[in-house]
């Protein structure tokens, strides 16, 4: 399974910009928002937390359809399904690889973009904490959605329609953590709930993902 992870990471690096693309998208969103809402600190600061979370979520969404699609196209997915690796583990490892190439870089880059958006300094640690804890859920839910749409033509658009509603609780608790962190209103509560969603997703979704993969490979 570690082999699978290292292969996926190596592929991401060799393909060029595997790590960078999501962050670049995130950067562009963070730059475009001030153009849209105006450069005023007073306007930007209150919405910064929400923009950063929505931006991270969209950046995450962008690369979801590649999780299984490349392996499906070149036949690796069928071969992997007949290999000793259980499909449940395959889904989990794929989600982990996706998180390492998108969620983790996004988390590390977020404070910088927080500065662009005038996020108050008191919110910074909470932004990092909420992204670090919340983005694994985004990758895991996304891997399930990618498994669901793997065999489909025009699966990418459908994938967004299926996955975005599933992202609602993560987004709410994630952005709320930062907001409460800024106003010092007890950010631990949403952060704990966010951790609960992440743990629940990691515990259950590999099974659902493996189930739909099996159906799709039939």
């Amino acid at each position: 399974m570690i082999r699978l992870l290292t292969r996926d990471l190596r592929l991401a690096i060799r393909a060029g910009g595997g790590f960078g693309l999501a962050v670049a998208f995130f950067l562009i969103v963070s730059i475009l928002v001030p153009f849209g809402v105006g450069p005023d600190r007073a306007t930007l600061a209150p919405v910064a937390a929400g923009i950063l979370w929505v931006g991270a979520l969209l950046a995450c969404l962008l690369s979801l359809d590649r999780i299984f699609a490349t392996d499906h196209e070149d036949g690796s997915l069928e071969l992997l399904a007949t290999s000793p690796v259980p499909l449940e583990a395959l889904v989990a490892v794929k989600a982990l690889a996706h998180w390492l190439t998108t969620g983790l870089p996004l988390t590390l880059a977020a404070p910088l973009f927080g500065v662009f958006l005038s996020l108050p300094p008191s919110g910074m640690p909470w932004l990092i904490a909420s992204l670090a804890i919340g983005t694994p859920a985004l990758s895991m839910i996304g891997a399930f959605g990618a498994a669901l749409t793997v065999g489909l033509k025009r699966g990418g658009l459908l994938l967004s329609i299926l996955v975005l509603p599933l992202y609602v609780p993560t987004l709410i608790f994630g952005a709320d953590t930062v907001r409460r962190g800024i106003e010092d209103l007890g950010p631990m509560t949403p952060l704990t709930l966010l951790a609960g969603i992440t743990l629940g997703a990691i515990a259950l979704l590999p099974f659902a993902g493996a189930g739909v993969l099996r159906v799709n490979l039939r």
């Binding site: 509603p165 609602v168 969603i197």
Partner: peptide, 23 residues
């Protein structure tokens, strides 16, 4: 098969969303 599994997973997340939205 796929829609049924989506319905199951969706139900869990719909319930979660319900409480998240309240919060």
């Amino acid at each position: 098969d796929l829609t049924s599994i989506l319905c199951l997973v969706g139900s869990v997340f719909a319930l979660l969303s319900r409480y998240a939205v309240n919060f």
